[in-house]
């Protein structure tokens, strides 16, 4: 009975009161996974679909998420959805997982987050593991080697293209193009870890913001 009432509160978008039990449930992981699955089945299934049927990375998921969460389920308004997109893009980490976190939290507290995130990554991880295990047997096959000889330059091009696309959306101009160039040269030629470059960018950006205020 409790299961159904929680489901209906989930639908009604107000689940703040169930959060107390979250941590109790978390102490028994198999059982809590089962509960999570029962109670938040819809949330899980929605994000499972979003994760399992989008090929080509996080941003491909946006239209599918919109269709599933806004149009089909009606859990979010379109404005809320857009806000969540910009927040997930600004935060560190994988875009799709960030989306699952913020939407899952909004809809169902800690348990909502868990099933949205798990649902989102479960299928991709399982698939890639299967592939990883079996690819080792085929790697030295002549045909596979030929296919990959064609794939490797393509993959490099697929990483080069977003560089220019992102340069556009980051509003790169003649005045500020030294930032990406210096960053690329530091990492590529001098072997500086990207972690330091990003930390420097955060510090520099904050400094710039403070002095310009």
């Amino acid at each position: 009975m409790a299961i159904f009432s929680t489901l209906s509160t989930l639908e009604a978008n107000k689940c703040r009161d169930v959060r107390v039990v979250d941590w109790l449930l978390l102490t028994n992981i198999p059982q809590s996974l089962f509960f999570i699955y029962c109670m938040y089945r819809k949330l899980f299934v929605s994000f499972w679909k979003i994760g399992a049927f989008t090929i080509g990375g996080g941003y491909v998921m946006i239209p599918i998420m919109e269709q599933e969460l806004v149009d089909r389920r009606g859990w979010l308004s379109r404005e809320e959805f857009m806000d969540n997109i910009s927040l997930s893009q600004a935060m560190p980490g994988v875009f799709a997982v960030n989306m699952a976190t913020v939407i899952g939290r909004k809809l169902g507290g800690v348990r909502g987050v868990l099933c949205a995130v798990l649902g989102n990554v479960l299928m991709p991880i399982a698939l890639i593991l299967l592939l990883a295990i079996f690819f080792r047997f085929f790697r030295d096959n002549v045909i596979v080697e030929r296919i990959f000889m064609g794939l490797r330059p393509a993959v490099v091009a697929l990483i080069a293209a977003p560089v220019f696309r992102m340069a556009k959306s980051a509003k790169m101009s003649w005045k500020n193009c030294w930032i990406p160039i210096v960053a690329a040269l530091l990492i590529w030629l001098l072997g500086v870890s990207p972690v330091w470059v990003i930390l420097a960018a955060i510090a520099g950006g904050l400094l710039w913001g403070v002095t310009n205020r």
Partner: peptide
């Protein structure tokens, strides 16, 4: 505005980061 300008610089840096990976 301070947070916004941080993200502006960060976005530009990420462009360089990905370029380095491609290179």
């Amino acid at each position: 505005p301070v947070v916004n300008s941080m993200f502006k610089v960060l976005r530009l840096t990420v462009v360089g980061l990905i370029a380095a990976a491609a290179l």
